[in-house]
Design a protein around this nucleic acid. Structure first.
Lengths: 171, 171
DNA sequence: CGCAGATGATTAACATGTTAAGTTTCTGCC
DNA sequence: GGCAGAAACTTAACATGTTAATCATCTGCG
């Protein structure tokens, strides 16, 4: 065990330890980050075995659920910023996992869809992924998991976050 | 609402829409990500005004809570990976916000502490930060927030995540 | 003592997050 | 018709996430 060190003073400005802040243990962003990381640590190895990152997987899943979708709409659904999405789409297209063309009525818009190759990849990854999710739900409790989901959604709403991760509300 | 597009089929492999996966709306990592992002969107502008990123702020807070601390222990407390921490420490040290020296008994170990300049910066940032947190707690409900914290902690435990964001358990 | 293996920390390399700036195409209005 | 401003991406630039490799130091053991 690593006995949590906190040696006697020597450096600077430590006499006034009274920093006007609550401890990390009460930091909401930290708690959310830790929980999410604990969950993702379960999924990442499986995705990695198939050459996918978490974000690439989100995109493929989103594309698999619709026929076609525009870039901006995909960014909203997969909760990714535009720049990240642009880079990832370039890569996924090069790997033949997605299809892309230009909207004939509005040449600014890109229209995306998953390829059959992408579909096959999803079919390979999904079973393990679902099994992992089931394991988490089992250990934590399905009922409790649903309650957590609900509380997270309410937190988002109470803060006013139905926007993409970017979209600052001052526009 | 922006009418969710899902045009009629035309691309490939969309006849077999039966992808064996639950919808995004039931994705736990996604829910945690969205909630965290909604929260962080409140804090980021304030931090940015003071030239700090979220991670730099986490480090300063962690350092302010102790006299001295080792790099590895700081990584655990601030929930950062080694490589990220190395880069950030280099920057914070160059900006004079932290102090660093080598452990005399074990020259591999680095010993960190916050500088008085770093202390002053915290004193500048903390009030707004606390106010934002109070606003969130007020809107969401203090009681409910505590319950959420508890459930997040339990989720971590049930998955077995008392490790740093790295530390795969195969070592 | 001296060396193999463990440990603490950094560096490398690539992917994404984040903000700002740039490009192309549309839309509204004169 | 044509031009200003908006909209949809994309690029750029820098910070962090993530994994693997490297470097220095320490520890255990012969």
């Amino acid at each position: 065990m690593s006995e949590t060190r906190a040696k006697v003073a020597r450096p600077a400005a430590k006499d006034a330890r009274k920093v006007p802040m609550r401890d990390f243990s009460q930091s909401l962003p930290m708690a959310l980050l830790r929980a999410r990381e604990a969950v993702m640590r379960q999924f990442r190895p499986n995705l990695r075995q198939h050459g996918l990152t978490e974000q690439q997987w989100r995109i493929l899943r989103a594309l698999a659920a619709v026929d076609v979708i525009e870039v901006t709409e995909l960014a909203r659904v997969a909760f990714l910023l535009g720049p990240s999405l642009s880079r990832i789409l370039r890569d996924l297209e090069a790997r033949g996992l997605i299809l892309r063309e230009v909207d004939s009525r509005d040449m600014r818009r890109g229209v995306l869809s998953i390829s059959s190759k992408g579909m096959k990849l999803i079919a390979q990854v999904a079973p393990s992924s679902e099994a992992i999710y089931a394991s988490i739900a089992s250990r934590y409790g399905t009922r409790k998991l649903a309650a957590l989901h609900k509380m997270l959604g309410e937190l988002e709403l109470s803060i006013g976050g139905d926007l993409a991760p970017d979209d600052s509300g001052d526009g």
